[in-house]
């Protein structure tokens, strides 16, 4: 049952991705109804699969790479729909849906069995800490997607070749604004995730901070986004610089997420 739901969600995301890519070449200034509908259906099925797994495992399903990638993708889609509802940004799906699909695809190739949680981690902190972290990271993920859109649109404007997607991408001001807003949402979430993580670490392992690779990289991420906000507010680093920084920030997150788990030994690694 859980497998079927997961595969179904993956299939729907795949279809939405294909449509969103077709939209790059052909389409209007708003996301097409079929794309939103299929992505929406995928999201509902995905939600059901997460709930199902939650029930089966007895905790938020973020305890293996498979679960975590899937949950990360789910958070991205959640924020994507929020933005779609609020701003109706044309072509956003074409930049976000492929990201969601790749995330889900990597989840699908990882081992799926539900393994018992080590007693140290059995705590309500698990849900709170990880949910905050993933929601924050999902905001940053979309901020990076928007940043790519910004750089593309800015390139059209600067080079004065106004073909391609120029007509259909939103104005650079809107893209900059949304990028900024997403970071102002993601940053406090990440901050809270680190704080709750420290509290949890204290109760589970006996100390707030152990310089575990994941902790270190999260801190680096936190500093990057703190810098993004700081230079924006003090020196007016907006636009291109902000877009580039948000993309760098997201690459750091990806490393923290995949790299640390796969390459470095960490308490946060999934056993």
């Amino acid at each position: 049952m859980g497998t079927i739901l997961f595969e179904l969600a993956l299939t729907f995301y795949f279809a939405a991705t294909i449509i969103s890519i077709i939209e790059i070449f052909k389409g209007g200034t708003e996301s097409s109804k079929p794309m939103l509908f299929i992505a929406g259906a995928g999201f509902l099925i995905h939600s059901a699969s997460i709930i199902y797994r939650y029930a089966a495992a007895g905790h938020l399903p973020v305890a293996s790479m498979h679960e975590a990638s899937s949950f990360f993708a789910w958070c991205i889609v959640l924020i994507f729909f929020f933005l779609e509802y609020r701003y109706k940004i044309g072509l956003m799906g074409s930049f976000i849906m492929p990201m969601v699909f790749i995330m889900m695809l990597s989840s699908s190739v990882l081992p799926r069995e539900i393994r018992p949680l080590s007693p140290a981690l059995q705590s309500y902190w698990l849900g709170i800490h990880t949910f905050l972290a993933f929601l924050g990271n999902a905001s940053f993920a979309i901020a990076a997607g928007i940043g790519v859109m910004y750089l593309l649109q800015e390139h059209y404007l600067k080079s004065k070749h106004l073909g391609g997607l120029f007509k259909r991408l939103p104005s650079i001001q809107v893209l900059d604004e949304i990028n900024y807003r997403l970071i102002t949402i993601g940053f406090p979430l990440l901050t809270l995730a680190i704080i709750t993580g420290a509290l949890w670490a204290e109760s589970a392992w006996g100390s707030y901070w152990r310089w575990d690779p994941k902790e270190v990289w999260s801190l680096i991420t936190w500093f990057i986004y703190a810098l993004v906000l700081h230079v924006r507010l003090t020196a007016g680093w907006r636009g291109r610089r902000a877009a580039i920084l948000s993309i760098i920030g997201f690459l750091t997150i990806l490393f923290t997420f995949f790299g640390v788990n796969l390459l470095l030994k960490s308490l946060h690694s999934f056993s």
């Binding site: 649109q153 404007l157 106004l162 120029f166 991408l169 939103p170 104005s171 650079i172 001001q173 809107v174």
Partner: peptide, 8 residues
Amino acid sequence: ELAKKIFT
């Protein structure tokens, strides 16, 4: 048209 792609 250009102004609108910069400032909305």
